[in-house]
Design a protein around this nucleic acid. Structure first.
Lengths: 348, 348
DNA sequence: CTGAAAGCGCTTACAG
DNA sequence: CTGAAAGCGCTTACAG
């Protein structure tokens, strides 16, 4: 029992205590716990009993300092925001726990990591990083790349085509599917698009899918029908309200994500019109509560939990073996509910 | 540059490198970084320059091993689930970051912490824990208490009235407020209640508030009007559907939380009735998207982000000074929208 | 199969 | 104001 610990009222058993209690050396205790090296069955049993009796668990810092492994990974987000990140976190946490990694979460909030004298997260306190789009600058990504520090990018391709593993949704085909549906099933021709933030790849590819569907159906692109949705409820609401005030004509809105779809629906109600009778609205993502809206939202389902799992699996592999898949594309699924004008779906 | 690091392709600067570069001892570098001890201005400047040039940041494990501080806290949840936890995480992360603590998140998933040979989270890798109701057993809470290891309980009182800091919502008065509203403004007399999980304090106190309001208005308690909501959309939906099939009469439903309120609304629609024209529904929490429902949900707003902030502030204080407020009660606010039958509210 | 010993990168009395 | 040295709790060659 050391003085420091005692002064804090904490007296934790160390590997030394376990060794003494089991009448072996600390090296043997270490071998038993880490299941490396040969240990006689009887010895190993004694050690496990000692561990259990002393309620011993290895000190993470000591282990990390010696072994150069923190058994910890970091999840970087630009800021904590709910609808999309939660299923992602769920998938990540699930695999992290199963793989024996602790999970650190950190919001970068536009504060450069390297500029801080005591960096909040990085190679000094994790074995690898999961980087959600928007959380790191290209420069910061390059910093980790040059260090050969394991990172996996989520919803963002590697800059300069570097070999950094990336997980993406099949945005273009998903977008095409839902616009095809609006055109082929419902006969809409004037379909507005609410685009997401300019720099986001998800947004770019969804827009491409929208164009592709229009083109395939010989519908000319009308730039007046393309507005800022910003993947944001309030921004979308304002855009759609303005459209309606300007008497812009459209019979359906393809919102770049569900957040903006909800903003669109709210705007349409604000203006005294109905969804989908007057204007149909569809979204993208299928996040929390879209099924429980009235009308239930037709959207493209992204396998977000699976994305978190895949990302974490790739990171674990990268840390442990040095290799991982450079590009993982996750397929999307068209979810037809009522906001597009369909009424006879049985699913919920 | 050591062999281990080189083999991983990583060569991180250490405090020794900084010391050499600045022509001082490692002790001095340590003093500069931690701003303890006296250091001459010129010396300190040289050290900072060296740190910046070498892109040095202290190795967390080494620091933790030596100083007995991990500068990390853990957030324990029973499982990752969205609506309530996200604003909580947001508040927690905000204060953790500002206070210089890293944040570990871990879902206990009913797996006892102490039973695991390598414990995923605890006194060996954090300085303190934020414990969300349902994530730890009483025995585990007692384990940390006896160790004098700092923990703060969220939405749960300390077992055996121990002196463990706790953060709670003012559930009873919040529930009373919203039931009062249903009775006094809308004249409803037959108000059903969807209770939450039996063991949750939040649920218990909301039920007490419901009784108190009924009593204050001389409305007898009808146990037929009380059913399982379980703070769960699907459970509530089934309960309300059954009520309606059994021709139970009620003109309003007070759901124990927003999740069950949404289940109730869905059930009422399933049965071909309207909210609020046929049956009014109100919830509790004011989580994500309740404002954007149709009809917008009347509910009691819990200051969830603030709860996360308060909890983290208490934990930091407890870690650093050993003292904290034993009980923090956060006031709630009645949010009147349309699902109760009100129509002329201006807010959104 | 087992142990003695070096050392991971820091902090902190202690001495000056 | 500064430095030399001990030591935090582990893991890992090395030797036997």
């Amino acid at each position: 029992m050391n003085i420091d610990a005692a002064s804090k009222g904490i007296s934790r058993a160390t590997i030394k205590d376990v060794a003494k209690h089991a009448n072996v050396s600390v090296a043997t205790v270490s071998r038993v716990i880490n299941k490396n090296g040969q240990v006689a069955k009887g010895t190993s049993d004694r050690v496990w009993i000692a561990i259990s009796e002393l309620k011993y668990t290895p000190h993470a810092a000591a282990k990390g300092l010696r072994s150069h492994r923190t058994q910890t990974v970091g999840f970087l987000v630009p800021e904590i925001s709910a609808p999309f990140q939660f299923p992602l976190l769920r998938g990540i946490e699930m695999i992290a726990r199963k793989s024996g990694y602790s999970l650190l979460i950190h919001a970068t909030e536009d504060i450069p990591l390297l500029s801080q004298p005591l960096r909040p997260i990085g190679e000094h306190n994790t074995d690898g990083l999961l980087v959600l789009v928007g959380s790191l600058t290209e420069e910061e990504i390059l910093y980790f790349y040059r260090l050969k520090f394991p990172i996996v990018l989520i919803c963002q391709s590697a800059p300069q085509s570097l070999d950094i593993p990336t997980i993406l949704f099949e945005n273009k085909s998903g977008a095409k599917k839902i616009v095809d549906h609006l055109i082929e099933v419902h006969g809409y021709r004037r379909i507005a698009f609410l685009r997401g933030p300019a720099k986001m790849e998800d947004s770019y590819w969804r827009e491409q899918g929208y164009y592709e569907s229009l083109k395939a159906h010989q519908i000319p692109i009308d730039l007046n029908l393309i507005g800022m949705g910003e993947f944001d409820e309030e921004a979308a609401r304002i855009t759609v309200k303005n459209w309606m005030k300007e008497k812009l004509e459209f019979d359906a809105i393809f919102a770049g994500d569900d957040e903006s779809a909800i903003g669109a629906i709210l705007a349409i109600h604000d203006m005294g019109k109905r969804v989908p009778q007057d204007i149909a609205v569809v979204g993208f993502d299928d996040v929390y509560l879209t099924h429980a809206r009235i009308p239930p939202l037709t959207t493209v389902r992204n396998p977000i939990v699976e994305m978190g799992q895949k990302a974490m699996q790739q990171l674990v592999q990268l840390i442990q073996t040095g290799i991982a898949d450079m590009k993982t594309l996750l397929p999307t699924e068209l979810i037809i509910r009522h906001s597009c004008g369909c009424t006879d779906n049985t699913s919920e």
